[in-house]
Amino acid sequence: MDASLKVQFWGTRGWISTPSLQTTVYGGNTTSLQVLHGDLLVGVDAGFGICNWGEQLAKRIVEKPEPLEIHVFLTRFHWDHIQGLPFFHPIYSPSTRLHLYAPYPKAYTREKLEILFTANYSPFSGLDSMESHMEIEEISKEICIGDLRVQVGEKSEANGVPYRFFAPDGSSLVVAAQSPSLPDFAAGTDLLILDAACTQAEEKAGYPGWGGGTYEEALSLAQASQAKRLICTRHGPYRTDKALFTASLQAGFVPAKEGEIYSVTLSTVLV
């Protein structure tokens, strides 16, 4: 089993899924990613992208029926970060244990997620009616999942909470929205994954990126953090592949591609 730290993007889109021929390169599912380390199953956020991960896990359950222990860290409760949860295949399997982590009291997190499973909006009758064991857990500063160490950053209403994942060899990655306190938390990380939706000029002109942060700000945060590498994700919903590709060349950043696996440590520095 490969113990080096990697990340796979399952959903790269902000606000709403944008399945179309113009989004096939960078992706059209709302935000979700998987942190790969050994045989652990660890994810961050549960936008609709998590459902494609779920399909992969469902196949695995059929081929090799053994209980799955899945850990999902939630950065925010905004729709595009949670809406895939009721459609994540493993939760229909009684042998699945799904841990949902957020830095809030359990009752608060439960209340926020319950709406997804209510009979008003779904064919379900509440979170507890699902067949899997879903465990909501309150985390504060740090938690270990096997030998993966997870640090919890400072939370805020606007920017949610950043997470930093450390492998035993000391390599790390940070998943975060843009926030002023980030450089301290992400200092020296190997891979910084930041939300960014448009250029500064576009933001001024009213591009409907809606506060997802600009590429320029992402680059300067990466520099201030002394991150070795930056990947921008949570792409603006009406951003085509062509426009995103052009913007990435002009501004000089790497846009996350759905389905792609990225190693956390590289011999070359890309930023």
């Binding site: 179309s20 059209g28 599912n29």
Partner: peptide
């Protein structure tokens, strides 16, 4: 139905 989906095998009929 159920949810929007985006992947290579669903582009013909669409994922919304």
């Amino acid at each position: 139905g159920s949810r929007p989906v985006h992947k290579g095998s669903t582009l013909g009929c669409g994922g919304h």
